[in-house]
């Protein structure tokens, strides 16, 4: 018997799968980019179903608000966006399918081998936020990886600014 939760789960699953098919198989690069919106949205929906509220909203903020908008900018600023030719023929079929099958097998293997820990869903657990626990974990147990990640991001940002500005340097001299 399917309940409301199952219906919502399958709705998001169909959204994710359908839109990812468009992303991969569409001949129009802009359509692929826009289909990505629904994929990201569906994954955020999964996070909500798992009551991972912080992760769900972060998914929307980072992937839709950041990466997707950047991607669309990139696609739209390229020349000839309307009739750009994407090569979608197949080549190297054998190695490609081998690697794909290998990765799929690896993922399935991990899925079956893993010792999944099922958290009992109590109303308190479902209604509480995960943000507080994640915040405490970041500044206590995982403080070093957290700081390293932020330093790496800062370096990347400064690097991006320097690369973007480099062209103007000779004019000053």
């Amino acid at each position: 018997m399917l309940n409301l939760y199952d219906y919502i789960f399958y709705f998001f699953a169909i959204v994710i799968l359908g839109s990812s098919f468009v992303v991969v198989f569409s001949r129009n690069i802009v359509h692929s980019a826009f289909a990505l919106l629904f994929t990201f949205f569906g994954v955020a929906g999964f996070y909500v179903l798992l009551s991972a509220d912080f992760l769900a909203i972060t998914q929307l903020l980072v992937y839709v608000g950041g990466i997707l908008v950047l991607l669309l900018f990139g696609v739209m600023l390229t020349n000839n966006i309307v009739n750009v030719e994407i090569k979608s023929g197949t080549m190297q079929t054998l190695p490609a399918s081998l690697i794909a099958a290998l990765i799929a097998g690896l993922l399935c293997g991990i899925f079956y081998v893993s010792n999944w820990y099922l958290v009992p869903t109590t109303p308190e657990l479902l209604n509480n936020t995960t943000a507080v626990a994640i915040g405490y974990a970041f500044i206590t147990t995982w403080i070093l990886p957290f700081e390293v990640a932020s330093v790496v991001l800062l370096v990347a940002m400064i690097g991006a600014v320097i690369i973007a500005r480099r062209e103007k340097a000779p004019e000053v001299e």
């Binding site: 919106l37 909203i57 929307l60 903020l61 839709v64 608000g65 908008v69």
Partner: peptide
């Protein structure tokens, strides 16, 4: 946080 995140759908 939700308000800030969701309004990015408008941009798309």
């Amino acid at each position: 946080y939700y308000v800030i995140a969701v309004s990015s759908i408008t941009v798309v």
